[in-house]
Design a protein around this nucleic acid. Structure first.
Lengths: 156, 156
DNA sequence: AGTGAAAGTGGATGTGG
DNA sequence: CCACATCCACTTTCACT
C-alpha cells in the first residue's frame, strides 16, 4: 500500500480557520466566515478538506487536572530488563490512568512517561505499587515538574 | 485573596458529559441529554457549572503534527549557567514555535522541554541555532521519542 | 436540579457561478 | 473554490416545578 497522502496545501484562510478552532473548538463557523470574509459554506467545505487530510484529528474539551487535585506532574524514565516483552509493559502502563504519555526513547531509558499525581506521596505510591511492580521494569528515575511554563500545540 | 475554590462535586452525569466532550468537543448537548436521560437544558446548566469551576479550561481542535511533516518529537533537558535570569530563558523559548512544553524541573536539568522537528537534521539545527544560542543555556541533553504509545488526558 | 417550550442561531447541503 | 438559499438541528433562555 503506497501511502499516497498528498502534501496538504494550506493557505491563509485555512490557517485562520485552524487558529480559531485550535483556540476554541466551539467557534461558530459563521463567525469565522465573517472574520475572513467568505461564506459559511466555504468554511464548511474547507473544514471537510482539512478533516479528510487528517490534519485535524478531532476536538476536545480540555480538563484542568489541577482542579481535580492533581498538583504534581512527573516525567519518569524507565529501565527495562533485557529480555522483556515491551508491549506487555506498555499494556500495563495503559491501565494506569495517571499515565498521560508514554514514549519509546533513545538514551539510557527504554521508556519515558508523563504522569500525574495528587502530591509527592501519591507519586511515590504510584511508583512503588503501580510502575515498579510491572514485570520487566528494573528501575525508574523521576523528574518532577515544579512548574509548567509552556503548553501548546504546534503553531499554524 | 483567599482562593476559596469549593471542592468540585462531580456526579455520574457530569462524568458522562465530560467524557463525551473530551472525546469530541462538538458533541451536541441534546445527544448527551438523550444518552444520560435528562433534558438538554439541564445538561446546559451543568456545563455552565463545570466551566465556572474551571475544570473545563477550554476546547480545541487537535492538529496532527505528523501531517505537517513533524516526524521527530524530542525531550530536551537544559542546564543553565548559575547566575542567569530564568525568565528570560523562558521568554526566549516561547518564541520558538517548535517548543510545545516547558517545565522547571527537579534533578540535574533546570529546564525540560518537549519539542517538534521535521527530522533529525532539523532537530540539530534547532538545538544549535535556537536553543544553545539562548543566553544562559550552558548545555543540553536530548531524548528522542522513537514512538509515542500513549497520549491522553486524565480520566474522569 | 430539572422540565418544556419558545426564539434565535448555526450547521449542512445542493444548485449554480 | 465560492455564494446563496434552504431546511433542519442545536443552543440558549425563562418561567415553572
Amino acid at each position: 500500500m503506497k501511502s499516497k497522502t498528498k502534501p496538504i496545501i494550506i493557505d491563509g484562510i485555512d490557517k485562520k480557520i485552524l487558529r480559531a478552532l485550535t483556540t476554541d473548538a466551539r467557534t461558530p463557523i459563521l463567525e469565522i466566515a465573517r472574520h475572513v470574509g467568505i461564506s459559511g459554506a466555504a468554511i464548511h467545505q474547507r473544514l471537510r478538506k482539512l478533516e479528510k487530510s487528517k490534519l485535524i484529528s478531532g476536538s476536545q474539551f480540555i480538563i484542568d487536572p489541577k482542579v481535580l487535585g492533581y498538583s504534581t506532574m512527573t516525567f519518569v524514565g524507565i529501565y527495562l530488563e533485557k529480555a522483556v516483552n515491551t508491549e506487555d509493559v506498555i499494556r500495563a502502563l495503559k491501565k494506569i490512568p495517571e499515565v498521560l504519555e508514554c514514549h519509546y526513547t533513545t538514551g539510557d531509558w527504554n521508556i519515558f512517561i508523563k504522569m500525574l499525581a495528587y502530591n509527592n506521596n501519591h507519586l511515590m505510591q504510584l511508583l512503588n505499587t503501580k510502575i515498579q511492580t510491572i514485570v520487566g521494569v528494573s528501575r525508574t528515575e523521576s523528574i518532577i515538574s515544579l512548574d509548567q511554563q509552556i503548553n501548546r500545540q504546534i503553531r499554524i
